[in-house]
Design a binder for these strands. Structure first.
Lengths: 202, 202
DNA sequence: CCTACCGATCGGTAGG
DNA sequence: CCTACCGATCGGTAGG
């Protein structure tokens, strides 16, 4: 029996479509995605696309998963080699600013945008966005806790406050760059983040 | 000649519709507004609504204007009586946190949401959102400058950096409250803002 | 994966 | 402000 290609290849094709949908959604929003437009862009019929994903909501969830994978690759993985605690936190924040200041997605940070778009719309997409955000906050909080325990940060540190500050600087940076085209914002964000964690620089 | 009501009354009606559209858009987004739905909600025909505003884009711009007026009333006006400089800045930030933590719009801070939604979509709506954001940044920056000149803040203060920090805390607070339902976030934002401007509290 | 089609709704216009 | 209507597109299904 010759290999029918099928399974693995179909999965790869699905992933390609999901990445494309994520890029598209970074500009027009997850709710702005339409089955017809995505189908046209990737060169299949609308019915074919529905066959792959089942429904628009499933396509949105797949696009979100693809965007989360990109974020992990761009921000988490470069920092995963650094020592847990302050060194890893600094590596994460540096990669995060690079990611936000760069052009990974044509429409800026996908997850930030999806958070703003779905924060008031109950449903599976909102739940998935909130979960991803909460998990990321947990990653940051963990590094702060380790830094405190190892004496790299003062014992009086309020780690929830620091995490809120860092995520605020990130989403604020996204807005400054995307909406206002502020080219100095990334450097400012770096300084603000460094101060927030008591490091000399990011 | 008996007063035909008309002009003033029509203007009031238009304003009512714009406020309603703004509330609706705070949940579903400015792009999610549709002429048919808004018309139904305010009890007129779709053609009647088009007669009032001309097009969907004009309705979006009117909704944005209405939201800006609400923001001014809720955040700027309560602080306008305070002395320019640090006192006024503290009053603004206190009112801002109250506004973001409260339920002025059913879907959270309208302008923050519109900024995220339109940051990558060229057009008049995007331009209007960016202009409103830039003007608000200028208001904040002005208070910082006055505070520095009067010696309330150190001469080494980087006022652009402080403004970026403050707007970041605001948009981050909006996300923490709306997406994560974090009830402690407003108090944390208050502490972070106070530290950023070197005040004992907000 | 495809063509062909469904009812609903989109933004907007014609005409009054 | 209204009714009636336009062509386009929406999410999705039938049947293959």
């Amino acid at each position: 029996m010759s290999p029918r290609s099928t399974a693995a290849e179909a999965g790869r094709r699905r992933e390609e479509i999901a990445v494309h949908a994520a890029e598209s959604a970074s500009v027009i929003g997850l709710e702005g995605l339409t089955l017809g437009r995505v189908a046209d862009q990737v060169g299949i019929s609308k019915a074919g696309l529905v066959g792959q994903f089942g429904s628009k909501e499933e396509l949105q969830l797949a696009a979100l998963d693809a965007a989360i994978a990109v974020f992990r690759r761009e921000v988490w993985e470069p920092a995963a080699g650094a020592e847990p605690g302050l060194p890893r936190l600094r590596a994460i924040l540096g990669a995060w600013v690079d990611y936000l200041a760069g052009d990974v997605f044509p429409g800026g940070c996908f997850i930030t945008a999806a958070g703003a778009e779905f924060d008031d719309r109950p449903g599976r997409v909102r739940d998935a966005v909130a979960k991803a955000g909460a998990q990321w906050n947990a990653v940051l909080g963990e590094q702060v806790l380790i830094a405190v325990k190892s004496g790299e940060m003062p014992a009086s540190t309020d780690h929830d406050e620091i995490v809120q500050a860092l995520t605020s600087f990130a989403v604020g940076l996204n807005q400054a760059v995307r909406l206002h085209g502020d080219h100095d914002a990334p450097e400012r964000a770096r300084r603000l983040m460094a101060k927030a964690i008591g490091a000399p620089s990011i």
